[in-house]
Amino acid sequence: MGPSGAGKTTLLALLAGLDKPTSGRVWLCDEELTALDEDGRAQLRGRHVGFVFQSFHLVSSLSALENVMLPLELAGDGQARRLATEALTGIGLEHRLSHYPKQLSGGEKQRVAIARASVTRPRVLFADEPTGNLDTASGERIAELLFRLNQELSTTLVLVTHDRTLAARCDRVLELEAGRLVA
């Protein structure tokens, strides 16, 4: 948690190995991120990390199903289609498999994004303001889904948010202010 400019996103980027710290070291799933090169970090993310973004970041040229298949295919999983179909069915989107992002509502887009982030059963799921672009009702459904997956897949969920009620549902809340941990 923290106000705009507090460094939440920077911290998330460092944790996921999307960025490199100017000093210090970062470990993720027993590996030292700061010692890996860019491809090494990408590989590590592919194996252990899932992402959910505020602005969904679906690939517009791919259908919902293809978007979910993407991380599996990158990891060379031969069962990509089956697993992705299951994942989308599991979150109630079985009727949207062949729809393209621009044919989906905001809430649906974010559910596809969550399916994509969780389909590889990652050990850590990073979510950057996952409800920030959604109306209250959709936001609640998304939060519900995230915490359900957190339970079902025993995935660590790292959530960046402004929303105190959302934060209150987490096991641990860290507060940032001007780049420092304050609580």
Binding site: A16, E38, D39, A42, Q43, F51, H57, S60, L74
Partner: peptide
Amino acid sequence: DTVALLKSIGASQAF
């Protein structure tokens, strides 16, 4: 944006 996304979910530069 697409390339950044691909890389964030594990795609290598070679990919």
